[in-house]
Write a protein that binds this DNA or RNA. Sequence first.
DNA 1: CCTACCGATCGGTAGG
DNA 2: CCTACCGATCGGTAGG
Lengths: 227, 227
Amino acid sequence: MAATKSSQPGDVRQRILGESTRLFAARGFEGTSLQALADAVGVRKPSLLYHFDSKEAIRDQVIDDLLNHFRDEIPRRLAAAQGGLDRFASAVSALLEFFREDPDRARLVLREVLDQPEATQERLLTHLQPWVHLVTDYIRMGQQSGRVRGDVDPEVYLMQVVMMVLGTVASAPVTGALLDRDEDPGMPRRIDELIRMARVGLFVDRDEEKRSGTGTGTGTGTGTGTG
Amino acid sequence: MAATKSSQPGDVRQRILGESTRLFAARGFEGTSLQALADAVGVRKPSLLYHFDSKEAIRDQVIDDLLNHFRDEIPRRLAAAQGGLDRFASAVSALLEFFREDPDRARLVLREVLDQPEATQERLLTHLQPWVHLVTDYIRMGQQSGRVRGDVDPEVYLMQVVMMVLGTVASAPVTGALLDRDEDPGMPRRIDELIRMARVGLFVDRDEEKRSGTGTGTGTGTGTGTG
DNA sequence: CCTACCGATCGGTAGG
DNA sequence: CCTACCGATCGGTAGG
């Protein structure tokens, strides 16, 4: 039942990578057989190994594509973005949306961290270090200007924000139910809270009105609403 | 090569669970064969299935033991703790140390979230909901007294802190290298920053001196948290 | 807790 | 990109 039978040149190769992303994210690398992958793509098993040297080679390509896409896309989005939100929220949202667009990206990264700590460490260093330096330099500038808290550890701060992003996106189906009873469908509560924590964790509270007691909607639209 | 040959009654069963924890955490459930597990325990493969009905049954027991231990241990530690740290830092440290004592716990939880979102959701609800309510009620009390920011979403805040804890511990070998160049050996930087972010994300900045410019040690001095 | 054994499936190859 | 096929290993069982 190969519903789609096309013959574009790199088409099958790309479909293999696409289905691998989905299956590796959902079931893990070890939990995904070449047979299951071939079925998903709509080809025979040996065809996978015509396009790639081994199952491992498929994994490597999937991860490299993901990291390259991240590296190319994030700076572009940070430059653009700012759709109605302030600069900081735009930046965090850009990061968040990259993974929200395809939650498999977050799951895949977490799986690689767990499955291959050393190889992943090296890969992340290679692909992400320029981006890390960009962000941390920016934070340090903010510290010198006094807008950013002096006790922020720039690299670690960034790492923790990324952790929240990955965790929030990857565990979306699980954490929804832990929010007392409502499901936080488009996950606005988790997004708002993530941005809020990232913000107050970074910036000096300027002319902050001392909020106390019930949280009046401060425009974040959090609304605990659980009664 | 069965280096250890003991005959305590529940001994083998416990050793199976212990080695399963280690192997499932490191390689995942699908990445761990019964043969590899038997080798690690020092018995023959069928012996595993004398103690447990199936490989799945081993996984279930490992997870249940972990969650039960968490449920029993955390309240106890929250009550005790406070070794030189303020109340809040003690609480976060208690959570952190539970996973730091055995990072496999964090890896296992993350793997279960990825491998079995639905089953894990239900398990977490069952085991953790009382604890979640305890914490979130406490946060809400703080909000009414004005010490806690009104715009904090208690459930989501807790979830995000847990995310940072799990991410920090599970990815320790990976993230060490991303911290520019130093390795943050006992991971004090990551711990301090986590506690700092959790703190400023929760509490109203009281008589906060406007820190600006270079961050002089502001007395967060949470140290390594290990006391 | 062991020996002996099972059918099914694994990643991968030969050869076209 | 396919058919045909490989040895190795998978989770699990029989029977003691």
